[in-house]
Write a protein that binds this DNA or RNA. Structure first.
Length: 605
DNA sequence: AGAGGTGGTG
DNA sequence: CATGCACCACCTCT
């Protein structure tokens, strides 16, 4: 690969006055493709400063000093970024988008992101996607990212070494872009890459906006849980103390804990060596089947410990001092299947509301706004119905039947109407099978799940697949092709790649089984992800088109939450439903796609 | 610092 | 052969 720039001596111009900036942007406006990068004092667009904005052509990088130039008030800057005809190249566009949006005020349209493109082309392989990695992979360049850190908290002058670093970052993007384009087409994932680029902007806006959390209510919940946790811990310690002779009192007469209740090693010692129980682990599945007062106390304690440690003060500490909201990070290629992953805080794992821990009730819209919450109803089941095309499955779903009850009636040869009334346990079993099989579960797993012998579980599976023969054919076909090709794909064109194990690998069979299960699940989970991502793009477009002063603020796998003004929230809920259904119907045509919208002041319905 | 165990979500 | 997918956070232990 012949580089068009000299990595030792990149061509750049450093601009510190508005007049020169206008001249340059007028020229840049004539380009078809521009590379963009920013240098900032930190990672938080609300707290940290924008230092440099680099905009480059393949030949030269223009480095604008954002402290010296009032970029926000230069219309030509906005025109270039919002110009649909000019492709803007980034590496991890989401980051730059947020700073440009927050500090310059413009949206960036027509994004190409080398980070996302690489992620789409290596999904499932666990490849490193940093700019440094791509520079090495595509250009054979060794990049020194040390200078990137030199911008953190910077208040003084920019030095030439920093400008060289800043310049290379845009110049590099062009040759990477060119090579990726060829590869995207060769691997037939250009369409899904485009989807990711479109979603990127919605995600960036979503992260900027964040979500309000009622701190007082949150603290109240935690305090209550903490009291209960403490009581249970005390009871547990009092109960097990007699088994530990060395227990001592401190100066104040407080009795020390006999063991650390959070230590599984110590719990195992207690249960197996002191209480005479024979337990393979301290997991909830084992605890449930063990009848001992200490075990019961531990289970109750664990419930509170989990909630407090994972969702207590640590989450409140993430509230942004500027916006007073939390700003989770949504990683759009966080999962190998195409699903989002979320962290800092992970709002995708906030517990469902219960009476004593209604955490989701603490997430509220701003004054004068409503939440519109909508999820896809039984979406993965509908996807399986459509992709397999199984006649029984599709007909039952189109007949509006309760699928788990219908499955149970077929499997156990019972009248459909009797399932919900007399045979609830059979419905539960059918449900477990239905979900388990979407994940490639075998008879062992099923037996453990519904507490029957392996042979009986195998019989259930045989009857399930007997009732839905095309479901079996579809899942087996996915597994077979994944092993044969080294990848699986969704109808939307999203691929997931698999490292094919060597025949000589001692774990060959284990790894092969893993691939087969992952490949059975991928088209289902992946199609869900594809539909939600199209929905996010559609919703964002409609918010603009209808001039609704609201935002998409959260997505949880099959659910989207918008925050919109009260006076239009009911109208918007219809639109949200419509757009989510439209997105789902891109892939699901044999059974209905149903989205249930809900308007209110709290998350969850 | 990283692995392993446990458990929260879809 | 091993035994249900996809994640992230917190804890303990090494």
């Amino acid at each position: 690969m012949e580089l068009q720039f000299d990595p030792e001596n990149p061509k750049y111009e450093y601009i510190t006055n508005g007049g020169r900036a206008i001249e340059i942007f007028k020229e840049l406006a004539k380009e078809r493709v521009l590379a963009v990068d920013v240098e900032t004092t930190g990672l938080d667009p609300h707290l940290d400063k924008l230092l440099l904005l680099q905009v480059g052509t393949p030949e030269i990088s223009y480095i604008f000093d954002a402290r010296e130039i009032d970029l926000k008030n230069l219309p030509i800057v906005h025109e270039v970024f919002e110009n649909q005809q000019i492709i803007k190249l980034f590496h991890n566009a989401k980051f730059d988008y947020k700073f440009i949006r927050r500090h310059i005020g413009c949206e960036t349209l027509n994004i190409y992101c080398t980070f996302l493109a690489e992620g789409v082309m290596t999904a499932g392989l666990g490849a490193s996607l940093g700019l440094k990695d791509l520079a090495a992979k595509y250009l054979g360049l060794t990049l020194d990212k040390e200078l990137q850190k030199s911008f953190i908290g910077l208040t003084g002058k920019i030095v030439p070494a920093q400008l060289v670093y800043a310049g290379i970052d845009t110049l590099m993007l062009f040759p990477i872009f060119e090579q990726q384009l060829v590869k995207l087409n060769k691997l037939d994932v250009a369409k899904i890459a485009k989807l990711e680029f479109s979603v990127c902007r919605v995600v960036a806006e979503m992260e900027l906006k964040g979500i309000y959390i009622d701190q007082d209510k949150w603290r109240g919940i935690i305090a209550n849980l903490d009291t209960k946790r403490h009581e249970l811990a005390q009871q547990f310690q009092d109960m097990v103390r007699p088994y530990y002779k060395t227990t001592q009192e401190d100066l104040f007469g407080n009795t020390a804990d006999a063991i650390n209740i959070n230590s599984n090693a110590q719990l195992m010692d207690l249960f197996n060596n002191k209480l005479g129980l024979d337990m393979p682990s301290t997991g909830v599945a084992i605890l449930k089947t063990t009848d001992h007062p200490a075990v019961n106390l531990l289970q109750d304690y664990r419930g509170y410990e989990k909630l407090i440690s994972s969702f207590g003060d640590t989450l409140l500490a993430k509230i942004n001092p500027i916006t007073k909201r939390v700003h989770p990070s949504f990683m759009q290629l966080g999962a190998a299947t195409g699903r989002f992953a979320c962290n800092g805080p992970n709002l995708q794992q906030i517990p469902r509301n219960t009476e004593e821990a209604p955490f989701r009730e603490c997430m509220n819209p701003a004054p004068g706004y409503d939440f519109v919450v909508a999820d896809y109803s039984s979406f993965e089941m509908r996807i399986l119905a459509d992709l397999s095309g199984d006649e029984n499955f599709v007909n039952a779903m189109n007949g509006g039947l309760d699928m788990h009850s219908y499955t149970a009636s077929l499997m156990f040869d019972l009248p459909y109407d009797s399932i919900k009334t007399e045979h609830k346990d059979k419905r539960q079993a059918a449900k477990a099978i239905g979900f388990g099989l979407m994940y490639g579960m075998g008879p062992m797993g099923l037996a453990a799940q519904i507490k029957v012998e392996k042979e009986e579980a195998q019989q259930y599976m045989n009857r399930y697949f007997g009732a839905y023969p095309s479901v079996k054919a579809f899942l087996d076909g996915m597994a077979e092709n994944a092993v044969k090709n080294g990848w699986s794909a969704t109808p939307g064109g999203r691929k997931r790649w698999y490292k094919q194990p060597e025949k000589s690998d001692p774990d060959y069979n284990k790894k092969l089984s893993n691939i087969q299960r992952q490949a059975k699940n991928h088209p289902i989970q992946g199609t869900n992800a594809d539909a939600v991502k199209y929905a996010l793009v559609f919703l964002h477009e409609r918010l603009k088109k209808e001039k609704v002063k609201g935002d998409v603020i959260l997505t949880v796998h099959d659910e989207v939450v918008c925050e919109v003004p009260e006076d239009c929230s009911h109208d918007w809920s219809k639109i949200q439903e419509e757009e989510m259904v439209r997105a789902g119907e891109l892939f699901i045509k044999k059974v209905p796609v149903i989205s249930d919208p809900f308007v209110g002041k709290v998350w969850e319905h």
